[in-house]
């Protein structure tokens, strides 16, 4: 056994791929409890949608036909790209490049704004057609889920603006950048939720 352990240690020490395993996720631990609470809330909402549909398949499938799937797909690409920009922001600050980090955060905020713009056009089109929460059960779910998510995008952007301002002022460094990671974690959660919401509401029937 001793020999085996030594052998393993040599393997681990020689491997260039080895990384430290952290006890907690990146960023402030508090944001992760917030994220898990959000996942739970949205998760219940997603499952409720699926079971509500099971009781009225024809209505849900017919109503889904009127959604703008192209706009939903473009918005998925927009959120994923915004998320990627936050990954780059974290990568930048880990190397000590605060200005570069702030620019990547700015790009992520810009893509958040683009998402809100596209989604607003979608809402405008639905509201112009006279669709409200009480039109039918499908639209009740579609509107409340996407508006609930919309508000999370806004909150994510507010957090990112605060982080970007601090980054610009030199508040983060290669050694101390928990704030950037905290903002990034929340921003990725907004993306992660949309990754399930889009196929669930717009595609699967």
């Amino acid at each position: 056994m001793v020999v085996n352990f030594n052998y393993m240690n040599i393997l681990i020490n020689n491997s260039r791929c080895t990384r430290q395993i952290y006890a907690t996720p990146p960023g402030d631990l508090a944001i992760w409890f917030f994220i898990f609470a959000e996942l739970l809330a949205f998760g219940i909402f997603f499952v409720a949608y699926a079971f509500a549909r099971a009781h009225n398949v024809a209505l849900f499938d017919e109503s889904q036909q009127h959604l703008n799937r192209t706009s939903g797909a473009i918005n998925t690409l927009v959120l994923i790209t915004g998320s990627y920009f936050m990954v780059r922001a974290v990568e930048s600050i880990k190397q000590g490049y605060a200005n570069q980090c702030a620019r990547w955060i700015g790009a992520a905020i810009g893509f958040g704004a683009l998402f809100l713009l596209i989604k607003s056009f979608e809402f405008y089109s639905k509201f112009s057609d006279g669709i409200t929460l009480s039109t039918n059960t499908f639209y009740m779910f579609y509107l409340s889920l996407t508006i609930f998510h919309f508000m999370h995008v806004i909150l994510g952007m507010v957090i990112l603006v605060a982080v970007m301002i601090k980054a610009k002022q030199g508040g983060y460094s290669a050694e101390n950048h928990t704030g950037v990671e905290t903002g990034a974690a929340y921003w990725h959660m907004v993306d992660l939720l949309w990754i399930i919401l889009f196929p669930l509401i717009y595609v699967i029937h």
């Binding site: 952290y22 996720p25 990954v87 974290v90 990725h188 993306d191 992660l192």
Partner: peptide, 15 residues
């Protein structure tokens, strides 16, 4: 979701 959680959110380096 697994890709976002493990790579973007960097959970792959955690417990």
């Amino acid at each position: 979701v697994q890709m976002v959680a493990n790579y973007f959110m960097e959970l792959r380096h955690t417990r």
